[in-house]
Design a protein around this nucleic acid. Structure first.
Length: 904
DNA sequence: TACGGCCCCTAA
DNA sequence: TGAGTTAGGGGCCGTA
């Protein structure tokens, strides 16, 4: 517990500065604390600290009406975490919590706990939640970063102390200004074995070098090792079994803002609950009540911001989610707060001096909308900014409508999280791989493999070498075999046979691992009997499990990106002997499969037809058994799969997957097929469809969005060796407006426009929005010739005679192309006239909306008009939602009269 | 016009 | 300073 006593009480304001108005203010309207609890041996004050408020900002904190402020504080206080029970406060019980995050800070070595060290030390912070919903920050002292080196032969205790002194001196030299009293804490002689290569001896001497700070090891690997023993206090890491496999009730905050409307909607859900614990919305200006929602209205934007900050502090969420919040909402809020001069706003974190959301985690932000459309059959309804302004500037009722939109959009990410069980998946993944949850979101695949490798190695007393940055000269090896594709349109069923998880199975079947690999010297020197080793098709030697069981095969039982890990020459522990052995076995398997199938399923062998493998890639083969009957093909497929599985080493298994019927094989990696449930391909219908579409294309009857090509901008303009359409466009856009131009990593949408004959494609690429705004004609011919014709012919040539003539040169291609629509038509002859809203009679007075006849029925017509507007708005909302489905939400258009407008 | 090479994307 | 892999098709530029 906090040494100050009851941690629920805010410690008295302890300003180091002179008394200021803020002191008084904060004393009269104290902000309750988030219910953070701390472990016994924690002495760091993690509470949000009032000294964050600078002198110059103090005035601004005082709201015009102190009562209002108090009312808000009272209102927010009901959302605080549950109060701590006496058992916690009296320190009489141990604290069990689920870890959510872990990091470390550099702090002062703990005198009480670590009486024999001093100076800066790494303090590990474990953030978590207890079963009752209390927030925990556990500070672990005594963590010591270390690494191993091979012990030079013949080194004794005296040599070690000498070595220690030398090392210490060198460190001091390098860090003259450091106040660290001792860099190398100690050096121990230990017995370990390297994970690299099969070794007959069980262990050999290593030196364990323990450093004062992790930065000194130049590696963060040490952080992952937990379970540090501290005098008299055990920090126990429970295996996630039984009681400890449960999920703590994390507080998940899902929020959304409607920026022009200055609204924030917040939903807080406890992990495991169906319904949000808190639903509220904070609005600028009045807002009509919403059932089941706490509506809070403020007079100034600043008050909204501060209220939201207070809310975050009070609720103390463990996880913050939202639609694109890292890229939009949070940066917007922080920037806007700066503009408004609310310096204290960005401090949303739990730890003083740490800013809100420094790490932005992405949860497939790219396609969240399509994902939510898919899984929830509803989408985020971004309200167009012009509508936002209108609704905001209306009355309490229109602002209420805006608030409802906002709430709905805040709810969506929460429901998605539930539906896809992200929380469970990430927690389970973290448990399996042994990395913090944040790593799963912010780091790559390889950290998971490395973490498991470290964990297993520790159990087995193995150490992992720190490989130097690999030179780029080595690093490639042969990959998988892709069987020659016998291109054609197959009108008999094609059976597909797949190896289930081929690469992991190979690693398990042949015990491929760092620690089972035999060096070429040892192959000669040790003269291991053939029955104890496997020689891989790529020429490497690995011992069988009876001599040494591999660690990688063990890990594979839990996770499967191990193959890529071993082949990552820029990674932490590449071992191309393993990766090339894996692919070599894979190549052997697929060739073997092809041969076996074609040898066994023959007329000579008693079957109706000779089977033919028409294609295969990496781990699959496509077989034409020659039978016309789908059922027969399936049976033969099963038979073949079983036969081949029987000849392979366990757990390698070939499975019968499916039957394609018919099947169109264009080339390697290019095929299409229909499952047997759809037995017919309507060729005349397909031809007609293609003809109609081409005609529409040439007649300009297509929506511009269908012409948008999108390519990724992978590097800056200068680094491209050749000119490419999307790169050139990005450069042109940068000249037009650097702020909105695509950056490296963005995807660049473009269309190809008409231009002088001979102009290169990269000169004709244009921003779709620019094209719409300036009525620039696109070039249908380009799309027909460069984008459509070749793939079309590849598909149709095997199934249609004279495909090119029929599809690309038929009468349907001779339609006259109409250029972009203009205002030159009949409307030029029309004249605008005012008419009565009620009866459409012409009226001459420009100030009037009703004719004399309708006068007196204003209320009726007003009501009618209002409901029409509301209907149209509703329609707009739905159109907008639908609109977002195409083009992955990049650029959308709608027409308003004849004028094109863009929405983004 | 043919062809090598860059670039992007996808299969597995 | 953090990063799974190779095979292969195809668009299109630049050059012979």
């Amino acid at each position: 517990m906090n040494k100050g006593g009851n941690p629920r009480k805010r410690p008295p304001p302890s300003y180091t500065r002179q008394p200021s108005p803020a002191t008084k203010h904060q004393a009269t309207a104290p902000t309750p604390l988030p219910q953070s609890t701390e472990e016994d041996f924690v002495d760091e004050d993690v509470f949000l600290d009032e000294t964050l408020v600078g002198e110059e900002d103090v005035e601004s904190l005082i709201l015009r009406n102190l009562e209002e402020r108090e009312a808000l504080t009272f209102r927010l206080s009901k959302w605080a975490r549950p109060p701590l029970s006496n058992a916690y406060i009296s320190q009489s019980r141990s604290i069990v919590f689920q870890q959510l995050e872990i990091d470390y800070v550099i702090g002062e070595s703990h005198e009480g706990l670590l009486p024999y060290s001093s100076g800066p030390a790494a303090i590990i912070r474990i953030f978590g939640v207890t079963g009752e919903g209390h927030s925990v920050c556990c500070l672990v002292h005594g963590f010591e970063p270390y690494f191993y080196i091979n012990c030079p032969p013949g080194m004794g205790p005296d040599d070690i102390s000498h070595f220690h002194q030398t090392l210490e001196d060198r460190m001091k030299e390098k860090n003259k200004n450091s106040r660290v009293p001792k860099f190398v804490r100690r050096i121990e002689l230990v017995q370990k074995r390297s994970i690299m290569y099969y070794q007959q001896q069980k262990s050999q001497p290593f030196l364990k070098i323990v450093m004062a700070l992790p930065t000194m090891v130049a590696s963060c690997r040490g952080i992952l090792d937990r379970g540090i023993q501290i005098d008299s206090i055990d920090l126990i890491s429970h295996a996630p079994e039984g009681e400890f496999s449960k999920m703590a009730p994390f507080r998940i905050l899902s929020f959304d803002i409607e920026c022009a409307g200055r609204k924030v909607a917040n939903l807080v859900t406890l992990q495991g609950e169906d319904q949000p614990l808190i639903r509220n919305v904070m609005t600028l200006n009045s807002c009509s009540p919403i059932v089941g929602v706490d509506v809070m209205s403020f007079d100034t934007e600043k008050e909204v911001f501060l209220a939201w900050r207070e809310f975050i502090r009070e609720v103390d969420p463990d996880i913050i989610i939202g639609y694109n919040i890292c890229k939009f909402d949070l940066p917007y809020l922080i920037e806007r707060a700066q503009t408004l001069g609310i310096a204290e706003f960005p401090i949303l974190g739990r730890i003083r001096n740490s800013r809100a959301m420094q790490r932005d985690y992405k949860l497939s932000s790219y396609s969240l909308n399509s994902v939510s459309a898919h899984f929830l059959s509803e989408q985020k309804e971004d309200v167009h900014h012009s509508i936002i302004s209108d609704l905001q500037n209306g009355n309490a009722e229109t602002r209420r409508r805006l608030a409802v939109y906002c709430l709905k959009d805040a709810y969506l990410p929460q429901r998605l999280l539930d539906k896809l069980m992200y929380a469970y998946n990430y927690v389970e993944m973290a448990r399996v791989t042994g990395v913090p949850i944040s790593f799963l979101l912010s780091r790559g695949q390889s950290i998971k493999v490395l973490s498991q490798l470290l964990r297993k190695s520790k159990q087995k007393n193995l150490v992992i070498p720190n490989v130097k940055r690999a030179g780029s000269e080595q690093g490639t090896y042969e990959g998988a075999t892709v069987l020659e594709a016998k291109a054609g349109f197959y009108e008999k069923p094609i059976a597909t046979l797949d190896f289930a998880s081929l690469y992991p199975s190979i690693m398990m079947a042949y015990n491929l691992c760092y620690c089972t690999l035999v060096t070429p010297e040892d192959v000669r020197r040790l003269n291991l009997p053939p029955e104890c080793v496997n020689r891989t098709p790529s020429g490497e030697t690995f011992v069988k499990p009876n001599l040494q069981k591999g660690i990688l095969p063990e890990i594979l039982e839990d996770a499967n990106s191990v193959y890529g890990f071993t082949g990552a020459t820029v990674g932490q522990l590449p071992c191309l002997e393993i990766s090339s052995s894996v692919t070599s076995y894979g190549r052997q398997m697929i060739e073997h499969t092809k041969k076996l199938v074609e040898d066994k399923f023959t007329v000579l062998g008693g079957y109706e037809h000779n089977a033919e493998v028409i294609y295969g890639d990496t781990d699959s083969v496509m077989v034409q058994f020659g039978v016309s009957d789908v059922e027969a093909a399936m049976n033969l497929g099963r038979e073949a799969a079983e036969h081949i599985s029987g000849t392979s080493t366990k757990p390698i298994k070939l499975e019968f997957e499916k039957v394609y019927y018919p099947y169109l094989l264009i080339s390697k990696k290019r095929y299409a097929g229909l499952f047997w449930t759809n037995p017919k391909k309507d060729i005349p219908g397909a031809v007609q469809y293609v003809k109609n579409t081409i005609s529409d294309l040439l007649m300009n009857r297509m929506d511009l969005s269908l012409f948008v090509i999108t390519k990724g901008l992978t590097k800056t303009g200068d680094d491209y060796e050749v000119k490419a359409a999307h790169v050139e466009l990005a450069e042109r856009m940068r000249k037009r407006d650097a702020a909105t131009a695509p950056n490296v990593g963005d995807r660049v949408p473009y269309v190809i426009i008409k231009a002088a004959k001979g102009a290169k494609a990269y000169e004709r690429s244009e921003d779709p929005i620019y094209v719409l705004e300036n009525n620039i004609p696109i070039d249908p011919q380009y799309y027909l010739e460069n984008q459509i014709s070749k793939p079309l012919l590849r598909i149709f040539e095997p199934i249609l005679k004279n495909a090119s003539k029929e599809l690309l040169h038929g009468s349907h291609t001779r339609s006259i192309s109409i250029s972009t629509p203009s205002n030159s038509g009949i409307m030029k002859f029309a004249k605008k006239q005012l008419s009565c809203i009620g009866c459409k009679a012409l009226i001459s007075n420009a100030d009037q909306t009703l004719c004399l006849h309708c006068k007196g029925r204003e209320a009726e017509h007003y009501y009618k008009t209002v409901s029409q507007v509301s209907e149209l708005e509703e329609l707009f909302g739905r159109l907008w939602t639908q609109c977002q489905e195409c083009q992955a939400g990049i650029v959308q258009y709608f027409t308003e009269g004849r004028k094109h407008r863009k929405i983004w």
